[in-house]
Amino acid sequence: MSSATFLPTVAEATAAGYFPGRHTVEVTEVTELTPGVVRFTFRDPYIAAHAKPAQFVNLFSHDPMKLLPRPFGVSEVSGDLVSLIFAVVGTGTAEFATMRAGDTIDVLGPLGGSFKVKEPAHYVLVGGGLGVPPLIYAAQRLAERDDCAVTAVFGYRDAHFADEFVSRYVDTRSIDETEGNVVTLLDRMEAELTAPREDGLKTVFLTCGPTPMMKAVALWASRRGIECQASMEQRMGCGYGTCVVCVVDTVDGRRKVCSDGPVFTAQQLGWEA
């Protein structure tokens, strides 16, 4: 064990069978996908090996005055590299966007629960805006299986910044505000999504994005008898259930998005027709 800090390293924690704490990793690439949207990649064998679709990672600022980390959903894993995609919306994300390969940053994760995707199904990944990145990772993991089918249905404000990544794994349909929104696209695909499938797989929606969009998607699915899981986007403080900042209303009372979620079913959220 590290004698200077008396805290275990990631390797020591993993060997002992428990979750490693905040630790420092190497940044390997920071790329602007479109103005204000950045893909951020770092090297972390532990997170790469353990992250599940919809789980997130906390990034910590180098500024000691910024105590709270910023949470981002895992968007892709390659070997021991972990990628995130986020919008630059404040000083924290602006700091991360200016980092370069070879820099270091403190991380914690993977945190939160994941999409429930163990059963064979036709999974339809319905995302909007910066809710799209966690669905890229869902597509990546589901594409490794031969007992399910996957379709991605994405809506953007303008630039289709994530299509090139998700299209590596699954069939992708997308739309931007010049044509409508993601529900417009679902309406166009209704016959395809609701018809009985030759492979016998039932259809399950996995959605992430702005809350009004996810609620509309959940209602669309409910009216057609389709199950829906929503990965909630909520402002978080700690990321592991201590600060109680990220609560959301459910039919069973208030729940913490970071530790009870971020994934909830449409039934849990009361988003049913």
Rank of each mutant, 00 (worst) to 15 (best):
W271T: 03
Y169W: 12
S2V: 13
S61M: 07
T265W: 08
K202H: 13
L67I: 01
V153G: 07
C246E: 02
K118Q: 13
T194Q: 09
G237I: 07
G200Y: 09
V247Y: 14
V166D: 07
A49S: 11
L111W: 00
A15S: 12
F86N: 04
T265V: 03
R254K: 15
L185Y: 04
R70H: 07
D163S: 04
M213T: 05
D163V: 10
W271V: 08
A159G: 00
E177T: 05
L130F: 02
G129T: 08
E179I: 00
G200E: 04
D176H: 11
A216Q: 10
C246H: 05
P69A: 04
T34I: 09
V74N: 02
A218Q: 03
A121Y: 07
V88T: 13
T211M: 15
K215G: 00
V57A: 09
V182K: 00
G237S: 10
A149Y: 00
T207F: 09
G155Q: 01
F86P: 03
I105R: 03
E227T: 07
F115V: 10
K215I: 01
P134D: 10
V217A: 04
K118R: 11
T5N: 11
A48P: 04
V88F: 11
G209W: 09
A15D: 14
S174D: 00
A139H: 10
T24I: 09
E198K: 04
E272W: 05
V182I: 07
T203V: 15
T184W: 04
V107W: 03
G225C: 06
V107K: 09
F6W: 12
K118N: 08
R254I: 13
M189I: 08
G21S: 08
R70Y: 04
T31E: 14
S2A: 13
R235F: 15
G73W: 03
G90Q: 01
G237A: 15
P110H: 04
F264G: 03
V244K: 15
A51Q: 01
Y240Q: 02
A159T: 13
D176V: 06
A162Q: 11
V117M: 15
H50L: 14
S114T: 09
G79C: 02
A218P: 00
Y240H: 08
V170A: 14
V244F: 15
R168N: 13
E29I: 01
V89S: 05
V77D: 03
D147N: 14
G113R: 13
Q140H: 10
P196K: 13
G261Q: 08
M189E: 08
G127Y: 08
G79Q: 05
F165V: 07
V117K: 08
E190C: 08
Y240M: 06
V251Q: 13
T203E: 12
E198G: 12
A216C: 07
F165C: 00
L84K: 06
T91Q: 14
D106S: 05
G79M: 04
D158L: 07
V263K: 10
T203H: 03
E190F: 01
E144R: 14
G109P: 12
A49V: 01
R43Y: 11
H50Q: 13
